[in-house]
Simulated scan of single mutants.
Amino acid sequence: MRIAIIGPTHPYKGGIAQHTTELAHRLAARGHEVRVESWSRQYPARLYPGQQRVDTPEGTPFPATSYPLSWRRPDSWLRLGRRLRGPGTPGSAAAADLVVLVVVTPIQAPAYLGILTGLRGLAGPRGRAAGTRPSRAVLALCHNVLPHERRRIDEPLVSAVLRRCSAVLVHTDPQAKLAAELTAAPVRVAEMAPHLWTAADQDPARSGPASEPTRGPASGPAREPARELLFFGLVRPYKGLDVLLRALAAGPEDVRLTVAGEFWGGIESTRALVAELGLGERVTLRPGYVPAEDVPALFAAADALVLPYRAGTASQNVDLAHLHGVPVVATRVGTLTTSVRDGVDGLLVPPDDPAALAAALRRLYEPGVLAGLRAKVAPPDIDSAWDGYLDAVLEPC
């Protein structure tokens, strides 16, 4: 099958770009003819206040990748859609049998709609209005159907895209319910497969699935607690760093916290809250993109990763922590409720509740609790997870 994946990949950074790249590798390893169609300019810099690109790949780049799309060139949207439709039948040399449209943000909806316009045939399927849906099968792969922090225009923009696709793939049941409210197209659910990376996993000659990252010990020798916690990743309001800081102030007095990641919209409000809570000696802020080679040391120094999200769908950070043998303290939102086993390899608390999170941090440092959690941490079964995920992607539209 000829498959075109439209989405971000290297040199763009972050989990969605990593997932797009790994999806391409895994589909190619199954024998499909795969291309990644990506962005030369993804969106205006003013709309993303952090670092968009990196020099060192986060994993192995997919060789059959081109960059025809630009947010400021609407002609590039239409031209890509027409090229993927091909000059004739679905078996023609230029055509894609399946187009996977990676839905990242409503900001890109006009570009998606331009691509879908180019994909439309002269007549729609029987029973549908001609030209409503593309003549090629199009799967909308939604990492989040709608943003965590929404604007009024987001819902109609995303709905316009999803209604023109053949099927929609989401990662959780609540997201499936949300998608079904926006489109009559079939909606399928598959748990997001891990797309983990390390500095060692960057062989540019590789053409198959990503080599399995070096795994930290799931249950290494017992060690004394470092009294150090980690918050890792892009800092945005819905991720609840302010909740964690308030919990830290009310929790064990000698526990420290490292915050490593880009700060969406600036760091000053966080610095002010740290000072207000008297945590200046206990909180280390490490703003900016964290390169792959620095990730193992961050997790090795931490007793636990803390994910105090107010809302969420799926997070790769749980798998990343477990890959390094680190338990997770998280809130009961999205897939965190199932990927963290409360009292087994982590602790779960209600969202947006500093008192409950403070109590969980005190429990974490009760005698034997941390060691017991570390002993039960198991690395993710990456290959099995991807097998199921690919089956969902390739299900007929």
Results as ranks from 00 to 15, higher is better:
Leu27Lys: 11
Glu366Asn: 00
Val318Tyr: 00
Glu262Gly: 02
Arg150Pro: 14
Thr331Asn: 08
Pro237Val: 07
Gly334Lys: 02
Ala24Pro: 06
Leu116Asp: 11
Leu257Trp: 10
Pro350Lys: 06
Gly334Thr: 08
Pro90Ala: 08
Ser159Cys: 04
Ala330His: 09
Arg133Leu: 14
Gly208Gln: 10
Leu348Tyr: 06
Leu390Ala: 12
Leu285Tyr: 12
Val274Met: 09
Trp197Phe: 12
Leu248Asp: 04
Gly59Glu: 04
Tyr389Trp: 07
Leu84Cys: 07
Arg133Met: 12
Arg150Phe: 07
Leu364Phe: 03
Pro44Leu: 11
Ala28Met: 11
Val344Lys: 01
Ile382Gln: 13
Arg286Val: 07
Pro351Lys: 01
Arg363Gly: 04
Thr258Pro: 02
Gln52Ala: 15
Trp77Gly: 03
Tyr389Ser: 04
Ser339Pro: 00
Thr338Asp: 11
Cys142Thr: 02
Thr258Glu: 12
Val333Glu: 07
Val99Ile: 07
Glu395Lys: 14
Glu268Met: 06
Leu113Gln: 10
Asp97Gln: 15
Pro204Gln: 04
Leu305Asn: 01
Val138Pro: 09
Ser207Ile: 14
Arg133His: 11
Gln202Asp: 13
Gly114Leu: 08
Ala45Ser: 14
Arg152Ser: 14
Thr21Pro: 05
Tyr48Ser: 03
Gly325Arg: 11
Ala179Ser: 09
Val259Ala: 03
Ala140Thr: 01
Phe263Gly: 10
Asp319Phe: 12
Gly208Pro: 09
Ala321Asn: 04
Leu146Phe: 11
Gly81Gln: 04
Ala180Cys: 09
Leu279His: 10
Ile115Lys: 03
Ala17Met: 09
Leu370Trp: 02
Asp353His: 07
Leu178Asn: 01
Pro327Ser: 05
Arg35Asp: 14
Val243Ile: 15
Glu281Phe: 00
Val259Asp: 02
Ser40His: 11
Ala93Phe: 10
Val290Leu: 04
Pro351His: 01
Val318Gly: 03
Asp391Lys: 12
Ala137Lys: 12
Val369Leu: 08
Arg85Thr: 06
Gln42His: 15
Pro209Ala: 06
Gln175Pro: 04
Pro209Gln: 06
Leu80Phe: 09
Asp203Lys: 07
Asp381Tyr: 00
Ser38Asn: 06
Ala24His: 04
Ala123Ile: 12
Leu47Cys: 11
Glu33Trp: 01
Phe231Asp: 02
Gly131Asp: 07
Ala95Cys: 04
Thr335Pro: 00
Ser207Asn: 01
Gly266Phe: 08
Glu212Gln: 12
Leu162Ser: 09
